[in-house]
Every structure is written in structure tokens, then in C-alpha cells.
Design a protein around this nucleic acid. Structure first.
Lengths: 157, 157
DNA sequence: CGTATGTCAGAAGTACTGATATTG
DNA sequence: CCAATATCAGTAGTTCTGACATAC
């Protein structure tokens, strides 16, 4: 299992190539690992990322139709139904008909929902503390800024 | 649907909170969008991320057992079987018994496999060009370094 | 005997498509 | 008549668990 130069196309001393290739996998690998940790800790309290996303969207933008939540979170309208069923069952949101447009529901976050959001947010903050552990304050801010710009660009088109 | 201060717990002027919350979703959202684009373009040529990961691992570390590939890529041994079946069917890898340990197979990348890797790598490079578009050369390097350190830390324990 | 390897069968989560009834 | 909304049914792909035979 030792070095067989014929069969390796990344040779030692060929660093730029190797870095580029690692780069291609970097985002995916990082995201996968971060996602795994986050999912793990959220399921430990009976939640999903989607719960967090919905509660965050409601907290940020106020009461909304389901279509509005779907647009803001990227969750499919069809999948949102189940997520809202769960959140409603937990008392975290209220779902009522919209008097102004009878096709729509108005989804409203409750006190319990705000508290739940705080709980999930603390968990995710813990995760990203763990993830960011090797970075300084300045570097975390750099990473935040770079990712924000990348994300804005991707969301924009 | 206008501002209802009672129901929003992110208030204007409460910026730090909002940033923190956005931060929690940032990696996930970015990863999701990058992943979607990458998957889309790879399936267009009949490939998956896992194909790329396996070929990259073989290129980087040379011939390996399936367990070795699983360790390096994070793909489960059970799932690797199908991935290698596909790669073998395409002529991209050879799978033979290990004379030194009859439990193991030795997986070797072929010439065609190296070419295939180049093809997939070009596709993913294109994706990350698209992703990194708003960043300067220096900033890309920064992002690369930050993610590398985060990733190393996560992989290490 | 306990452990590692490759393989298979299947569960659980996620992402997505399509159809439908209701309403605008 | 066309578009949007909430909902449901079902597909596809990913992640992960468990079992098993073989070999160390």
C-alpha cells in the first residue's frame, strides 16, 4: 500500500493542484460535518433545522402566510405543512385563516414559540462555537462577512 | 401584515442579535445552495459528489481498500459498494482482491478514472468560480484558509 | 475467540414533483 | 379562464443501522 507513483496523479511537490482539489471538497465536507452536529443536537430536543428556520423567519418578518414562509426559508410549500403541524402541536405557532384572503392561513409565533426559538438558537450557537473554536474573533467576523457576501450573491441570482 | 411590534422579537436597532441569528443559518444556507448547483451539474454528466470524492481520494492517497476510502471520504462502507460498482462499470476504477489480506479489495484508479476526475473537477471548479464570483483573489484565499482550519478541527475530533 | 472487511436489506431524513380543491 | 394557496400522495436520493459471511 506504499507510494506507487504511477497510480497517483497528485504528486508531492504539485501543491497547487492538491489545494485546488481540496478546495472543491472543502465547503461540502465542512457543511456536511456542521450539519451532522447540528441535526444531532436538534433532534436531541425533538426539533429539526426546519423548525428553527420557520421560527426565525416568523420572528424576523412577523406573521405570514405559508407561501411567504416557504419563500423566505426555501422549504417547499408541500413540506411546510408537516413542519407547521408539528410546531402547532407544540404550541409554538398559531395557524388561522386570513380574513383578507380566504386561500391563505396566517401563521403567528406564540410566546412559547419565541422561547422555543431561544432554545434552538442557543443550541445552534453552541454548535457554531464548537465549529469556530480554532478561529479568533477577527477571523470569525471575516468568515461571517465572506459567507454573507457569497450567500447574498447566490440568493440574488 | 405590517409591523406588529408585539409579535416580532427581532426589533430594528437590535442588530447584534439579528446578525447572530443569520450567522447560525449562514453556513447551512450557503452549503445547501452550493450543493444544489453542484449536484445539478454533476448529474448532468451522470455523476455524483461521491464519485468525485472517491476518485479524489484515490488520486490523493493511491490504491486503497474500501474501508480506507470510506474513512477518508466519510462515505459509509455500505454505500461505497454501489458507488464503486458504478465507477467500475464506467471503467474508472479497478477492483481486485488484496493478496496480502483476503478480506480486502484493492481499489485502483484507471487512466479513464483520472480523466473522469479531471472532468468532474472542472465542473466543480466552475461551480466554485460561480460561488466565489463576488470575492477577490485575496478574499478567496482567506475563505479557503478559514474553512480549511475549521474543517481540520472538525475532522480531528 | 474477538475484530475487520465487504456486502446486502432496509429504516429515517430530506428534497422534490404532481394532482387537487378552494379562492382571487 | 388563469393564477395562487394549502394540502396530500408519491418519487428519488442521502444517510445511517443492522445483519451476515468471510477472513484475520
Amino acid at each position: 500500500m506504499e507510494t506507487n507513483a504511477e497510480l497517483r496523479f497528485f504528486r508531492v511537490g504539485h501543491t497547487p493542484e492538491r489545494l485546488r482539489h481540496q478546495f472543491s471538497r472543502l465547503i461540502g465536507m465542512t457543511a456536511a460535518q456542521v450539519g451532522r452536529v447540528a441535526t444531532e443536537r436538534l433532534t436531541a430536543v425533538g426539533a429539526h433545522k426546519q423548525h428553527f428556520m420557520v421560527l426565525a423567519a416568523l420572528g424576523e418578518f412577523g406573521p405570514s402566510s405559508q407561501a411567504g414562509i416557504a419563500d423566505r426559508t426555501g422549504i417547499f410549500r408541500s413540506d411546510l405543512v408537516a413542519v407547521l403541524n408539528e410546531l402547532e402541536a407544540g404550541g409554538y405557532v398559531r395557524r388561522g385563516p386570513d380574513p383578507a384572503d380566504k386561500r391563505r392561513n396566517v401563521i403567528t409565533i406564540t410566546e412559547a414559540g419565541a422561547a422555543r426559538f431561544g432554545e434552538l438558537d442557543a443550541i445552534l450557537t453552541g454548535v457554531h462555537e464548537h465549529v469556530m473554536a480554532p478561529l479568533s474573533e477577527d477571523e470569525r467576523e471575516q468568515l461571517f462577512n465572506l459567507l454573507t457576501r457569497v450567500n447574498a450573491h447566490l440568493a440574488g441570482g
